[in-house]
Amino acid sequence: MSAFNAIGEERDIERDEFTPGIEPQPTWCPGCGDFGVLKALKQALPEVGRTPEEVLTVTGIGCSGKLNSYLETYGFHTIHGRSLPVARAAKLANPGVEVIAAGGDGDGYGIGGNHFVHTARENHDMTYIVFNNEIFGLTKGQTSPTSPKGHKSKTQPSGSAKTPIRPLSQSLTSGASYIARTAAVNPNQAKEIIMEAIEHDGFAHIDFLTQCPTWNKDAKQYVPYIDIQENDEYDFDIHDRREASEMMYKAEDALYEGEVLTGRFYVDDERPSYQEEKRAIGEMPEEPLAERYFDDDYEWERSADLIDRHK
């Protein structure tokens, strides 16, 4: 018998269940793209059959970090840039839990960049949503890793001398096995991509364009957008690394030229998830570790079993 009966529970799930009964006053500005992520998640989760209590939403710091304040699931609002190491360990500890990590572009591509690279490399079975608004919002409008070159802000008064990071390309080279970009202004696509990401067995990275109407007024509202799967101009094989790579490069450049290319960029269904790799070498138990602590019959191993080598 499981100690975690919310996991795998078969029942009808209402979309309302993901809205907190007492909804905390949202700290997001009117017109903020973050509402789009929240809405898409609330739509996607019941459709993939997940209940609020089998989901753990792990966030970083920033406007995006408040996601789990407004989404009714188990939540862990961590520290700046560290949502991924917290999230992937929770998944290893109890693989039955549906783990979704989220953060902003500063959180994920800046301060947490090292964790992004390594979590993608290891291909942990989880979803990572990066709220990309090309700006530091919560600290009031500083230049971020995805701000365009020349971006002027209070901390970059002469305009940034840095070219922006290429989040999709970096994700691909790091090892993510599902990579997509969507936009808050495109709710249907966003919902579908989130559903695919959750169902994907491996590290699914979504670069989610979230317009910031307060601090990034100059930036486009990410309209019009083009869905690359729907547009004949962008015919490429999402299972082919090289073609995906070229498409990503194109989309990353296009964004700063006012062309918003969204959709799936890379999908690898063959690559085993980290959990599978770890089990294959005998370094992860088949049964969820978290369950063991509730199993009264489990005979716990002792260091006395290891002591002979010291005699």
């Binding site: 975690f4 996991i7 609020p52 209590e53 699931t73 188990y74 109890n94 839990v97």
Partner: peptide, 10 residues
């Protein structure tokens, strides 16, 4: 703990 029924919190 995450995954337990009735225990969700932030």
């Amino acid at each position: 703990l995450p995954g337990q029924k009735g225990g969700r919190y932030l």
